[in-house]
Design a protein around this nucleic acid. Sequence first.
DNA 1: AATGTAGCCAACCGCCAGCTG
DNA 2: CCAGCTGGCGGTTGGCTACAT
Length: 249
Amino acid sequence: MGRAPCCEKMGMKRGPWTPEEDQILINYIHLYGHSNWRALPKHAGLLRCGKSCRLRWINYLRPDIKRGNFTSQEEQTIINLHEVLGNRWSAIAAKLPGRTDNEIKNVWHTHLKKTLNKNQNNGGDNKGFSGNNETTHKDKESVIADTTSRQQFSNCMTTFENSNNNKDDMMSYEDKSALVDASCWSGVVSVDHSSNDEKKIEDWEGLLDMNSNRFGCNNSKLYSDDMQFWFELFNSSRRIEELSDITEF
DNA sequence: AATGTAGCCAACCGCCAGCTG
DNA sequence: CCAGCTGGCGGTTGGCTACAT
């Protein structure tokens, strides 16, 4: 028997997500988690396939996504990691907190690849590994561990500082704390999907109404500059440094 | 101002591995 | 053991925007 299609083509919406769809997905995952992507759109009332919902969540709506331009340090880290890992974008993304594999892949194809080629044509004066054929695999690993742990630390600091410098663009701290309450999010992924009941559906619909009034259409920045999240990440970065020697190679 | 071109990025597609009954 | 299902991954595409002519 042939493989079942990932989603029903008939009646499924495609293309860019609307703010309303984003809000529905956020609220639904907020309440029920995402234990079953395939069933999620049906339960949430979205005319999207599960795969599309997953991608939207992973690449755009997740609360810990870091938006904005890549720093030169991040770019250097990507170059270094790509030298060792190749096109394993998810593995590279795992070393860059807040960045998605899709984002890294895009940056690589649109910017870094060109920069590298240019550098190589100019004599390969790249501070990373490019052009240094004598660097051993072991050396690369140690540099990566070192680079990424420091990178994580400095990213946290930079983002945290930027958050403080851009208060005008931000929701109030109280609003954001309520929205991205840590205990709430920690519960999101652990919710048992099978325990849905009518009460939860009522809660879900109520939350939908409440949030659509509250946020209007400006959802894309809902979590993007969340100070609380980065502050917590900053606090945990010391542990990351301690763990940086535990590599997965 | 209108048109053409290049760059960027969100989203889609198809394949694969792991899990389950 | 096997077939089917699902999530995850990497490659690719298409639409939007900025810039050049």
